[in-house]
Design a protein around this nucleic acid. Structure first.
Lengths: 194, 194
DNA sequence: CCAATAGAATAACGTAACGTTATTCAAAAA
DNA sequence: TTTTTGAATAACGTTACGTTATTCTATTGG
């Protein structure tokens, strides 16, 4: 063992990288009332990206929705929120039940494009598609035309079928006799994030 | 002036009463990421004396979503349809988890009117409202102006606040100095039935 | 030569400490 | 009787501190 063994020392640029902490960013201290500590903690945790990424374009409703995280104050009206009248708060809504009529025939699809803007369907919107519904003319459907998936309004003119956009920048599509059309499902809901 | 004038002095029981502070209870310091400071502050804001009763359509997310019924043929792809790739169908989606970020701060509200058509918000649409989000200018918010509930885009021009429609048939609203404005929540999602 | 080591540097998190503001008490003074 | 005053207590926002976490690279040892 050498008497003057020395390692280490100053290194320019050494140090923990920014954003490597618990929240990925700097923090500051904030005074929180004791009764709200857990609520605030829950709020900070819920900021994690727990949302399902949607790598595949077609999805099904969750077969067994996970219960949402329950903060400790779940059973009382949270202080800090102006609360609606008591009887109003009793009314609850389960989005799965509201938006999914027939679960096994229901799929979700992300919209790609603006051809249906006039119908309130924007690029990136999430569509709820029910495959058990009949494809009535006038309804917005997921169609497979010659193997190409598209979202359009179905129209029937006499014996001819059309797939109509809801954006003047897009052309109407008439289904030719030699073409193979399949109506994959009917769009029931559009979910648009702001 | 007497040279030895003395008043004051120790008093048993003197002191500020407990619970007389900003939150009515003791606080402690908590580290909050810089980006969440406003959200946490909003959460902590105590009930305004200016709380406004809200109309009946206000709903909250179901606290315990019921499991959906499971038909016997759940795992069979309907014959005759080009089916999505098998791995796609494995992916599932729970709408409650996707659309409700902070359950205790989330409410639903039905839209009445067409003032926000340009933003894809139609009469009868269902709005997902998060009350923990800061009301940044440019965001679509639920505002209570002089007791009247409205859905508008919040805008700030200098020191003046505006509530902007997204429909030329409706007028911009400037918030007057004598007017009382409360931002009740921020609209995060629009659900539109077809 | 290469892998491991070590000291320094930097980020950031939880808690303690500090100074200020807010509220109360009651004896002394006016 | 009312007002004043010094002390006491609560609590809020901010700063300070110590610890944990992560990185850098020259030096050392094999």
């Amino acid at each position: 063992m050498t008497g003057n063994a020395r390692r280490g020392g100053a290194r320019a640029g050494a140090g923990r990288p920014a954003g490597s902490g618990k929240y990925g960013e700097p923090t500051r201290s904030l005074r929180v009332p004791l009764s709200r500590i857990d609520a605030v903690r829950a709020l900070l945790v819920s900021g994690d990206a727990t949302d399902h990424p949607l790598p595949a374009p077609i999805l099904r409703p969750a077969s067994q929705p996970e219960p949402l995280a329950r903060p400790l104050y779940a059973h009382r009206i949270p202080a800090g929120f102006p609360s609606p009248a008591e009887n109003d708060v009793e009314q609850t809504l389960d989005l799965n039940r509201l938006l999914v009529r027939n679960r096994d025939a229901t799929f979700f699809l992300r919209v790609d494009g603006d051809s249906m803007l006039g119908a309130g369907i924007h690029d990136g919107d999430l569509l709820v598609i029910d495959r058990s519904l009949p494809a009535q003319p006038g309804r917005i459907v997921i169609a497979v035309l010659d193997g190409a998936l598209t979202v359009k309004r179905l129209e029937k003119r006499g014996a001819r079928l059309f797939l109509l956009p809801e954006n003047p920048a897009f052309a109407e599509i008439e289904v030719g006799e030699a073409q193979e059309l399949m109506i994959w499902g009917v769009v029931t809901q559009v979910i648009h994030a702001l």
